[in-house]
């Protein structure tokens, strides 16, 4: 029981991070119909931006309040990652928008290789580790030999995720920007005919996706305390799995998918084998796609001639 509760807590934390990345995949897929492989790279770059920003404000400017530091690095990472993703869209995807289906996919794979190696070249190959930001945790249960605890980092991740998802939900459902975005998802040509600036909407989609990934990246750094240039790929694939599981194109689906993937991963590690946790996640992806290709909340794909 205690193990289960602890894994539930860990799984929800991990799932929040996956969910935030998954939104980026699902939004871009919804609007451009492409798998944005570079998104995992953006996530990893954002973690590095957060790392350098953290070092900058703690060691150079001497900010000692960790809450303050965390907020600042998140904002810095969000802004710079958004600029990065905007540029990526502009440079690597926009020229290929009218081109054939595989072109943007290959371009995004190239971009992802570029980002990974860019970080490797500029920041070095080694793992970068930071000391934990908060040393505190809340003990929920204690039966003598197993304690169930929630760390402050985990609480921060939940709070930030919930706040961000609230803001994001408001943005997509209540504002004109969100309306334009949903219109472009349904039919770009029609949207442009009724006066939606499609290029701008797509750019903003990439900006939002990057901002959410940047929050995920900063929290990943904070939660694990370590980041390396190769850290983007696996969380990226898992987040994509989450997006597919929840139904690609569906925003709540991405979050639910993320939580499910996070839970599967932690539960599998606890009860079966930690070595095969990634196999379990990918196996779930394959099973879901085979039996439920539209995902949990996705619309079924209608075949048209």
């Amino acid at each position: 029981m205690e193990v289960f509760v602890q894994q539930l807590i860990n799984g929800l934390t991990l799932g929040s991070i996956y969910g935030l990345i998954a939104i980026g995949y699902t939004m871009v897929f919804g609007i451009l119909n492409m798998v944005n492989f570079a998104h995992s790279g953006v996530f990893m770059v954002s973690a590095f931006i957060a790392l350098n920003a953290l070092l900058l404000i703690t060691t150079w400017f001497g900010v000692s309040s960790m809450v303050m530091a965390l907020m600042i690095i998140m904002v810095i990472s969000m802004v710079l990652s958004a600029v990065l993703n905007w540029t990526i869209e502009r440079v690597a995807y926009r020229p290929l928008r009218k081109s054939f289906r595989l072109a943007p996919l290959i371009s995004s794979i190239g971009m992802s290789i570029f980002l990974t190696n860019f970080v490797q070249v500029t920041q070095g190959q080694r793992n970068k580790s930071i000391p934990p930001l908060f040393h505190k945790q809340i003990i929920l249960m204690d039966n003598g030999n197993y304690t169930v605890a929630v760390s402050y980092e985990q609480i921060t991740i939940w709070v930030v995720t919930i706040l961000l998802l609230g803001a994001f939900w408001f943005l997509v459902t209540k504002t004109s920007l969100g309306r334009a975005q949903r219109a472009c998802e349904q039919d770009q040509k029609m949207a442009s005919l009724v006066g939606v600036n499609v290029d701008r909407t797509i750019s903003i989609t990439f900006v939002i996706a990057a901002a959410l990934a940047a929050v995920a990246g900063s929290m990943y750094l904070m939660y694990y305390g370590v980041v390396s240039f190769s850290d983007g790929f696996v969380p990226g694939i898992k987040a994509f799995t989450a997006a597919v599981l929840g139904g690609i194109g569906s925003l709540p689906g991405a979050v639910i998918g993320g939580l499910i993937i996070g839970l599967i991963e932690t539960m599998w590690s606890a009860y079966f084998s930690i070595d095969y946790k990634d196999v379990a996640v990918f196996g779930v992806l394959a099973i879901v796609l085979i039996f439920l290709p539209q995902g949990i909340l996705g619309r079924p794909d209608v075949e048209k001639v």
């Binding site: 440079v91 690597a92 290929l96 072109a103 943007p104 290959i106 371009s107 794979i109 190239g110 971009m111 992802s112 290789i113 570029f114 980002l115 990974t116 190696n117 860019f118 490797q120 070249v121």
Partner: peptide, 12 residues
């Protein structure tokens, strides 16, 4: 590999 990735994007 950095140039490899960049070349992929540019050729595309």
């Amino acid at each position: 590999m950095l140039l490899f990735g960049a070349a992929m994007v540019l050729i595309m």
